[in-house]
Design a protein around this nucleic acid. Structure first.
Length: 216
DNA sequence: GGATGATCATAT
DNA sequence: ATATGATCATCC
């Protein structure tokens, strides 16, 4: 068990100490307990090593600092490989953008890029006014659909930077819900995700990256 | 080749 | 059951 960082500065120092290392080196140096190398493995190793405290509660990873940790898989030109999961959508949607799960998680994020299991330089980020406006507009549009009982009609194609996709162990998992006729139904649990082009913009604005294909 | 929908592992 | 960590696999 590694103690939580007492300040943002300490968290950043710890994160910088990881940059340039491979995930295997980190596991060895920090004596990370053995576990299966599954999909979320890299993120959970970094949580452990940096002393994250939130566990599986719906809070930012570093609760006292209000900072969410996100590993960001990137390719050799610095482009994110995937969308980024933000949070699950609970049965009762958040009423307002301010204070919503998405707003609190994205208010302050420690991005740690990762390429082929090599850890990159950390970035402590908060959305710009423009970015927050985009996020809020999408969130309000998507949340309104959910509040109208039309969650089942949501597809991943809606939303400019934020999207809603299934988030469950598998597609046969169902959760009780109320449809737009006020009737009890069951739907696949869903979550909010950031589109890859949104995180790509964050990387492009904050890192010196290759914008064209590298020469051979 | 990229995005959408599906899925895997763990913690409480 | 539902939150966390995400990536996988299929379709267009």
């Amino acid at each position: 068990m590694i103690t939580p960082p007492s300040s943002t500065t300490e968290l950043l120092e710890r994160a910088w100490a990881l940059s340039g290392l491979s995930i295997d080196e980190i596991v060895t140096r920090y004596h990370v307990p053995d576990h299966y190398r599954h999909k979320g493995w890299v993120g959970q190793v970094l949580e452990y090593v940096l002393g994250a405290t939130a566990g599986s509660s719906p809070e930012p990873d570093f609760v006292e600092l209000g900072i969410e940790l996100k590993t960001l898989p990137i390719n050799q030109t610095g482009q994110p490989q995937e969308s980024t999961f933000v949070c699950a959508i609970s049965k009762i949607p958040d009423a307002q953008w301010q204070g919503s799960c998405v707003q609190r998680k994205l208010n302050k994020v420690l991005w740690i890029p990762c390429h082929q299991h090599q850890i990159g330089a950390p970035l402590l980020w908060s959305p710009s006014l423009e970015q927050e406006n985009l996020l809020r507009a999408d969130w309000e549009e998507l949340t309104e659909i959910i509040m109208l009982g039309k969650a089942e009609q949501l597809t991943a194609e809606q939303g400019q930077v934020l999207q809603v996709r299934p988030k469950a162990a598998h597609s046969r998992i169902l959760r009780s819900d109320i449809n737009n006729n006020g009737e009890a139904t069951f739907i696949v649990p869903r979550g909010f995700y950031l589109r890859a082009h949104f995180t790509a913009q964050i990387i492009a604005e904050n890192y010196l990256v290759c914008h064209s294909r590298p020469e051979h």
